[in-house]
Design a protein around this nucleic acid. Structure first.
Lengths: 206, 206, 206, 206
DNA sequence: AATGAATGAGACTTCATTCAT
DNA sequence: CATGAATGAAGTCTCATTCAT
């Protein structure tokens, strides 16, 4: 067994400090993005809000883009965490219930941090991260395709790839626009969920 | 023959020159937006590409935004022109044919200048022109609602406002994403049109 | 006798038109200077206010400076005209009355167009026209020296050059500052006139 | 001896560097103003003369005006420092001696940096700092009024506010113009001081 | 002469990033 | 490693002036 290096604890401490700094920077970036918008979000402002010197910022992130990318990652992890359990559940339900659950999930995903989501949604396409856009990301897309595969017999559509694209795109767009509208009552959101569910179910069902 | 007024030609020449400059600037803006993206599209670059001095640019457009707004207007007029006749036609068809035509129309609209459309779609939300976003603008939205109103009896949905939102949003998102993918064959586009049409028709039909 | 050239009348007409254009430009410059301040007074704005094209402006004035110089000249001629008669009168009065008249004259001079005067007073030093500054110009200065010369016996001062400088500078500064204050009542202005007169008379009188 | 804290030197060095930059900028502004005049004094020129990047200039001064304001402040502090002791002394002298001292003081004040003073005197009115204009500022004005108050019995004038205005304005104008003339010998300056003193004393004395 | 479109030097300012301490 | 002063390219915009018509 290798001897525990003497510097470990200290390194741990410093690692902890590093981690805290990184977190503070990511958090500050998110806050500044929301409060000031992308164009006004300067690295100096971000460093200031994080309570960190501009030099330190560049110790941990090589560029402004890297910072924004980290925010995107964190946001997507947050969304994923909020949704993963439900997604798993939905996978075992019959079509209509499954779809309804998925739609509800999409709404929930968009509501994790709508203002941040909005800013990011505007910036992501400009950062060549198109594939990750939307609150439904690759992972969820695959799960849904899987589900369709397993229920192929109950479906009216043959091309599951296309069908997945149609469903995911439609649901994503509807929930995205609805959440961004901001002024929707709970009742209206429920109505939207109903309609979206119907849209998808009727499309899929044989 | 009426004598040609002596002052006319000069003024005309002048006006023609102005008009040419303005057009060159709008065209250059569109080209730069496509080639370099919004952030890199500086007024100097635009003036350079238009073969016009920076001073002339500011003679006609008070700011970068004004320039982009002009590009948006021009693009929307182009789209509208490409689509208006078909839209009118579609209004008199039975449901399925109408929807199919509308979907085809949406595809066509997105194909007017897809790369420009992509850039503008990213910028429009940041310019407070939300309502005009998408290839379906307000006017088309109203037409569609009208159509639903007139066919209310054949529909399964009661809330036409909501139904319009659902249909327009879904069609817009599907065609937008599909066109942006760029790598779709004609056959694939036809399949998408079929699916989209089915999606909408099944949703609407009683 | 030389025959009257056939073009004379026309030339007259065109000269009249030229004169009108020049006047309009000078007037417009004065107005813009007062309304917008020196820095905001662009040649284009001046041409616009004069109802004349920028090209024509440069037909008559080679530069912005020339325009301002013309305004200064005109203003000084206006002031001179307003004051000349009184100045002549004052020259024949006994000391105290003469001084009082001169002070009143200085006030009047500053009131010809106080707002324009103020702007010009700020600009003149920057244009190398120091010697002409103030509402008392060279001509008036000489007249006053003359007056002192002719009343030398009644004076307590020997160096008339210096005395002239002292008197003219003091009166000019007092009336200038007082008029620029703008908020002085007539009564206060009268008090100032009294005091200024006393200041000068006591200084001069044996 | 207390141990020198480890972080102190760096911070000090930092602060010293900042301070040096700021000083260099203010000094450069003053120099450029004198050498080129206000209109030609661009921030780039100033930064260049200070041997500092334009970015650093804007790190410390938000605008060109702020820079000029700093120069004004510095100049006024310099003037004040040169004059304060004498002013205090003068306050305890009898009328004639006091006035003579004040006049001498005004001359001295104008001689601190006459060329800079000239440029600033032209700019200050345009910066809404009217009240501070002249080498006599508010503080000195108040001191003088005080002095008159305390010697009211010896004076021929009742309205001390007006009297202060008359005295301060006259002295300021005379010394200002005299110093700006530049070509005056010491003897001439002495003569001017005598005359100015007489002007004021005779005006005030009962 | 009159017109006004065009010019372009140059002003002010911002901000991502580097580097001496 | 942290700090924050310093950098300078690049951006937006103005305005006196020129010149083709």
């Amino acid at each position: 067994m290798a001897p525990r290096p003497l510097t470990k604890p200290r390194k741990d401490a410093s690692q902890k400090r590093s981690r805290a700094t990184v977190d503070a920077l990511v958090e500050a970036t998110a806050r500044v993005l929301v409060k000031e918008g992308f164009d006004k979000a300067s690295t100096n402002r971000i460093a200031g809000m994080a309570g960190v010197s501009i030099g330190s910022l560049y110790q941990y992130f090589p560029s402004k883009e890297a910072l924004v990318a980290a925010v995107i990652d964190r946001h997507q992890r947050d969304v994923q965490r909020a949704v993963r359990a439900e997604l798993a559940e939905a996978m075992n339900l019959p079509l209509e219930k499954a779809v309804r659950k998925l739609v509800a999930m999409a709404v929930k995903a968009h509501r994790v941090d709508p203002k941040l989501h909005r800013v990011l949604a505007e910036q992501i396409p400009r950062m060549g991260k198109l594939e990750d856009s939307g609150a439904f990301n690759r992972e969820n897309y695959a799960s849904f395709r899987d589900y369709l595969e397993r229920h192929r017999d109950a479906l009216a559509v043959g091309d599951l790839e296309l069908a997945s694209f149609v469903c995911v795109t439609a649901v994503e767009a509807l929930t995205h626009n609805a959440v961004l509208a901001e002024k929707l009552s709970d009742k209206e959101m429920d109505a939207l969920t109903d309609h979206t569910t119907r849209l998808i179910v009727r499309y899929l069902k044989a």
